[in-house]
Amino acid sequence: MEMQHQSNQPGVQQPPLLEVRGITKRFDGVVALHQVNMHVNPGERVSLIGPNGSGKTTMFNCITGFYRPEEGQVLYKGKEITYKRPDKIVLQGITRTFQNVKIFPTLTVLDNLAVSIQQHQEENLLKRVFYTGGIKKFERKAVEISESLLELVGLVQMRNERAASLVYGQRKLLEFACALAPDPDLIMLDEPAAGVNTAMVDQMKRLILDVNKQGKTFLIVEHNMGVVMDISQRIIVLDYGEKIAEGKPAEIKQDPRVQEAYFGK
């Protein structure tokens, strides 16, 4: 809990882990994001909310390198990552999940995790082609990490099944575990509670809080307001591609602009 205290203490100036400065993204002339600023502090749990089409997922894609914003910058640990390739950004320590749950269906559950780890292991290894000595060690380590994560999300018994045989909720858990696998600093979850039953929503909330306690930072897009209020320390609200509010859950609940954006006048 120490890290959270730090970030919440007023007056302690700490550089943000992630900083988004004036991001603008257009699609064929339609503005999806307009001059949005936001930041995420180390160890924080931040939610990004807003009505459908308000630009949340676009923001995710701009941060993770899948979209190139027309204007603005994304800084991670003080370094600019704006126009980097998605794979480079992941290797710097930002992992993400997808709204429509992406896993590799013909790989086994264990291999899904291992493949999420392997590039990180090899990243600093220039002798990629000649790593025969190190590769076995890496592989053992990857399997070790994968198994402990399967235990965490409760998928141990599915270890050698093809991921295609998992049901939706299990896929979500697997994708979440994959996001944790390479030991990232910032984990970005796109609707972790969507489409699953209440028991699994609770499990997901618990997992996020537990992992956060170990020092991982979360940026979450979520529609389920109950979940958002329970897990966020800070909430950022987007509407029509602009940031309309930002604050603690209790403040956001009261904010008239938010109520208007969500429920109309």
Partner: peptide, 16 residues
């Protein structure tokens, strides 16, 4: 396999 099944997902786990 990762690249074959889903290039977007593959980039999201650090594969170019």
């Amino acid at each position: 396999t990762a690249v074959r099944e889903d290039e977007v997902r593959a980039s999201a786990v650090g594969i170019y």
